[in-house]
Amino acid sequence: MTPLLEARNVSKRFGPVVALKNVSMRVYAGEVHCLLGDNGAGKSTLIKIFSGVFPPDEGTLLVDGAPVRFQSPKDAMDRGIATVYQDLAMIPLMSIVRNFFLGREPTTGWGPFRRFDLKKAEKIAAEELEKIGIHVRDVHQAVGTLSGGERQSVAIARAVHFGARVLILDEPTSALGVKEAAVVLRYIVEAKSRGVGVVFITHNVHHAWAVGDVFTLLNRGEQVGTFRREETTREEVLQMMAGGEALERLEVELAEFARQERRTR
């Protein structure tokens, strides 16, 4: 099977800083590909290359097996690659239906009488919300009335509705509570079952393990490895993450700190 989206040996430098070094990654339809790593590991740089924010310095980007060079995020969107950013997902004061269709409003009428087809928009938005299990009384209520998890889910539903084949989710669960995160994770699984290829960026290994099929680990711009779920365990993934190392170190330090506390008391 040809991957929907592939990065082949991509590198990216910002001045003297090497942000990504020789990283390869394949995203297949119907698969959740988790991109893991600590802050500064290069996750954001890689997804910005995927979503057309900037091109790689070296290496190739391929869509459906053919090399591409995106000039802008819109290029990537036109090829079915949609990115949902944690902080840019939705506009709180706007209604759900207006948010859902912002920038891609359905219209009716012609010429100067072309207008926003709100009836159609309301119908579609209500259907899409129903599909992801979010029940609202009125799609005209402000997005601000939704919970953080619901907002992320609606943003994802919007991307899928507008034909995303590859969905890049930038830390969609990091600002959410446990229940909220579960809402988003459930919807990630649903998007996957519809045949969407999902790139899921997180530094929460529990969230990754709950939905991931493949795990790619980055550390300081380098690829630690790519593992299929059946080849590894959660503990192993946790260990390999820079976050895992840091956690171990932190535990040692905390233990040392506690000992000293006891002694001084």
Partner: peptide, 20 residues
């Protein structure tokens, strides 16, 4: 649609730009 853009631009210009 232009009216919807007005709301989007005022609500969050970056988010509006991100969706085109």
């Amino acid at each position: 649609p232009f009216g919807n853009w007005i709301f989007g631009v005022g609500g969050d210009p970056k988010a509006a730009h991100a969706v085109g």
